[in-house]
Design a protein around this nucleic acid. Structure first.
Lengths: 144, 144
DNA sequence: TTTCATTTACGAAAACTATCGTACATTTGT
DNA sequence: ACAAATGTACGATAGTTTTCGTAAATGAAA
């Protein structure tokens, strides 16, 4: 009995070995989001979700996902005719990298400046705010 | 006596009238950052700062700034030979837009998820943390 | 087995970004 | 007044991203 095998492309392996960082484009991010939420999926499954919010053909999504596999953003199981793709990068890792870059290039390196903006313009629930405050307390403790 | 007149390009006016949103590229953001900090400047002034951290010729910076003016990202005073450019978009506005998009596309719409990430990965000073806590208190008060 | 539907693969066009060389215009110094 | 310096304008090119048409492969159905 065989288990499904997700493979990385050669290019992907080389890149991860050299510790390169992830820089998905806008469209790539849309695909990653679908895969992060739904888990491993076919091109068609991903496409059907993207279709709801954007206007592009099936082959466009396919091509994008193929390229992403080349780049190492996606793994795929090609053992059956219909390939199954999965994200090869963690959501958290990607989030952190993009966030770091944004703090750097948009907020002059000040994370708290970003935080204030983020909190000011988005209604956060009471629970979320509490969570953040607790977190702040922890950080302060550690600093002592 | 004349005062300096900064002009928007026609394209810029049309775009701002239709309420389009700002989406500067990486390079454009670098230029905006310089102008936000230094205020209205010549191409040369901007270029000399960019030169320190990146490797591109003068005409490259010039072209970029011309394009940005076309797009409405920059205003310019062309009354003297040496044009003087200024940002046509506020830093705060731009920050908020880019941040909103990031929350949307990268953090599934959860601002506080982003906040936790931001605080976790960047050492913030005690004062900054205090500021954030005060801010949180204010928000909570308003919610009651 | 032949046909039909689905899927992948390939290539190429269109749009956008970044870069720079060169030409032209305008000051400025001599 | 005129040459040198400085600046802008104008392509042109290379790279990347997004898009899609068409062909080839594969599996299912009749």
């Amino acid at each position: 009995m065989f288990t499904k095998v997700f493979v990385y492309s050669l290019k992907a392996l080389i890149m991860s070995a050299t510790g390169k960082h992830i820089k998905p484009t806008e469209s790539e991010l849309e695909i990653l989001r679908v895969l992060w939420e739904k888990g491993p999926s076919t091109v068609r499954e991903v496409h059907e979700i993207l279709e709801q919010s954007k206007d592009a053909g099936y082959t466009t999504t396919l091509k994008l996902m193929q390229i992403m596999h080349e780049k190492g953003l996606l793994q795929r199981d090609a053992s059956s005719k219909t390939h199954i793709y999965a994200s090869a990068v963690s959501q958290e890792n990607t989030q952190r990298q993009l966030l770091d870059k944004m703090i750097d290039t948009v907020f002059n390196g000040s994370a708290s400046q970003l935080v204030l903006q983020a909190l000011g313009n988005h209604k956060s629930s009471k629970e979320e705010l509490e969570k953040i405050k607790q977190y702040l307390d922890e950080i302060e403790k550690q600093q002592r």
